[in-house]
Amino acid sequence: MTPQYPEDRKRLESRSLVVAMWGNLFMAAAGLLAGILSNSNAIMMDGLFSLIGFGSALLGRRISLRIDAGPDKLRPFGYAADEAIFATFRSLSLLGLVLFAVANALKSIYSYLNGMVPEPLIFAPMITYFSVIGVTCAILWGFHYFTWRRTGRNSSILQVEAKAAMFDGLVTAAAGVGLGAIYMFRDGPLASIAPVGDSVIVMLLCLLAIGSYVRDFRGGLGELAGISASPAKLAAARRSLRAAIAEDGGTLLDMSVTKLGRTFLVSVYYDPDRAVSAMEVDRLNLRMIRDARQALPGADVMLMITEHPRRWPDEMNPN
């Protein structure tokens, strides 16, 4: 059941992000310690991912606490853009870490091919690490996912954190399987790559991760650039406004929908086909906002009384 009041949603979201902070900090410390004890770059990289997760949860909580604040002198359009900025730069920081890990793995492989044998892996600490971190990731994913559902499924921050926890769990599981295979077959089929098996796994994990992070980065960048929302969201907004427009009796000339974080901005270009007062325009705008929020939670409607759609006719264009 979705909480009725914004304060309750904010409290639940803040609690989930506090859990994310401490969970990621624990996993980061465990990963760095286990990476040192086992001489494993793959585990070290896993710990660095969690360290970035701690920082992002800390920043995400600060953004969450003020995301619903309305326009003010400093931010005349409100604080909705902070969520899109968060998602964009979190993906960018993870991409940077992936590229760093790839460069280190390639360096290790190159050194091995030139006769430099890396320190052997110590497998004993790995079993405890993969077991504990796998359970922690599952708990974090469940906590974020069900909080996201309880708060109306419109928090990009919680959605990103749930996805990150799930992906971190999958990466941890993949690293565990890969290192386990190297341990079991280090004197058999995998003997030739066993000395650099850790670096090979890092490469494979990075290839697995990079596509997801590029998509997240492009999605956040698209929101910041003001790209139109998906056709499904546009159709939902159009349906939600039909009743208000039919009752008012005017003509819908054009409409656009953009997404920014958890909010949607519906721009309505509307000709009332009659003289209207400012009070009538305000009432129609508020009706549209209420109706739009039934289809798109967090939506706002900008009603523009005009004879033209979003682009001025060429003969009138001041440019």
Rank of each mutant, 00 (worst) to 15 (best):
R262E: 11
S50I: 10
V202I: 08
I201S: 01
E315D: 15
N317Q: 11
A275F: 13
A105N: 00
L58Q: 10
V214K: 02
R218C: 12
H144V: 05
E7P: 05
E13H: 03
L179I: 04
L260E: 14
F143M: 14
G180W: 06
T306H: 06
S256E: 15
P309F: 02
L260V: 13
Q294N: 14
A278H: 12
P195K: 04
Y112I: 04
S38V: 04
G78C: 08
N104I: 07
N24H: 09
P3C: 03
P272Q: 02
L253H: 04
R186F: 05
S228W: 07
I289H: 14
P120I: 04
A138P: 03
D46P: 01
T2L: 11
M45F: 09
G142M: 10
T263I: 07
L48P: 07
L37S: 01
D254Q: 10
A69R: 15
K73T: 13
A164Q: 14
R90L: 14
Y110V: 07
L204P: 00
A299C: 10
R242M: 09
A243W: 06
L74E: 15
G60Y: 05
A162Q: 08
N39Q: 08
S16Y: 01
Y5G: 02
D168L: 11
A237G: 10
A299W: 05
V281F: 07
A84I: 09
L99K: 04
G55L: 11
P76F: 08
D291T: 10
F123S: 01
N104G: 14
C137G: 06
R310T: 10
F264G: 08
P189K: 09
V19D: 10
L253R: 04
A164N: 15
A42C: 03
V160R: 00
A209I: 05
D271W: 07
R293F: 11
G115Y: 02
S192Y: 04
F54R: 02
R186K: 13
M279T: 15
A101G: 01
A29D: 00
L170M: 11
R150Q: 13
N41H: 12
L32S: 06
V276A: 11
L37N: 00
I43S: 03
G180M: 02
A244D: 12
F130P: 01
Y183L: 08
A105S: 05
G142F: 13
S108E: 15
K259M: 08
G53K: 03
I43G: 04
P272Y: 00
G134V: 09
R310Y: 03
A174P: 01
